[in-house]
Design a protein around this nucleic acid. Structure first.
Lengths: 148, 148
DNA sequence: TATTGTTATACTCTATAACTATA
DNA sequence: TATAGTTATAGAGTATAACAATA
């Protein structure tokens, strides 16, 4: 192996690899529970539904997903009783998506599990440093451009 | 909407959502370049190949992927000239996967792009806070259990 | 018997395109 | 004409199962 063919491996893993590993831990923590067929993507969609309802098109923008894909998840979550849709009185093409009480309970359970993971992380690195971590992540996420 | 049906939305997004948004930014930064058909998963696999080579089974463990899936990416990266495999002299069932010089150049390009993203993040939040962020992420990633 | 790696298969996620009903 | 949402289709990613060759 020539020197030109060497690449730093474990000494300086980039942020994508690190976040991937962190994600994996969340995935495994969620996998412990029984979610009755609902998967991570369902959580992402239902979490983006605001308390006062939203159209599918607008929801798809929030979760950075096509409205086709988003509509599928909404349909499944409606079948499972976590969402319901009502006609939009001001536009008969549109349907307003709302959470049911069951959907709200689901979100709370998901959020509690993730909060558990965050607690263990905060314990591992210390509350102060974890708070900086979270704040940096928030700043980075908020400074994103909307979907082009 | 009853109070029992309310869920905090934007005020306290959990870490999975935040990391998802950050990931998206990396994905978009990489999408600017032409990678000749290689995708993020190829990067993940080739980056995990150490300088001195590795078997497919061990590689699949590193990238937390089945050996079947890993073998597919190795095959594609071999076809594209980024990896090559040599027989393992000590075990005729096994093949040793190595990076070619082309593969090494690819990794360097990927890592440079991600480093660019990290630079902009560090600028947004300040170098010191970004360094804490990175360190927390490293600690969390390193304290993971290996695949069960 | 156990392990390395392959082939076959299937499911999830998500994208594009084409369509309908309504605006 | 443009937009909301649906249906159809396909490709990317990754899993399980069954297998051949070798240990």
């Amino acid at each position: 192996m020539t020197l030109v063919n060497k690449v730093s491996q474990t000494d300086d893993p980039h942020v994508a690899r690190l976040m991937g590993a962190a994600f994996d831990e969340i995935r495994r923590a969620l996998a412990v529970d029984d979610w009755q067929g609902l998967r991570t993507s369902h959580f992402r969609v239902i979490e983006a539904v605001p308390d006062d309802g939203i159209s599918i098109t607008e929801l798809s923008g929030r979760v950075r997903m096509t409205k086709q894909g988003c509509g599928q998840f909404v349909a499944q979550l409606t079948d499972s009783g976590h969402l319901r849709t009502v006609p939009d009185p001001s536009d008969r093409r549109s349907r307003i998506v709302r959470r049911t009480a069951k959907g709200t309970r689901l979100i709370r359970r998901v959020q509690a599990r993730i909060a558990d993971v965050e607690s263990t992380w905060a314990e591992r690195v210390g509350a102060e440093r974890y708070s900086v971590f979270r704040d940096v992540l928030l700043t980075v996420a908020e400074s994103q451009q909307p979907v082009a």
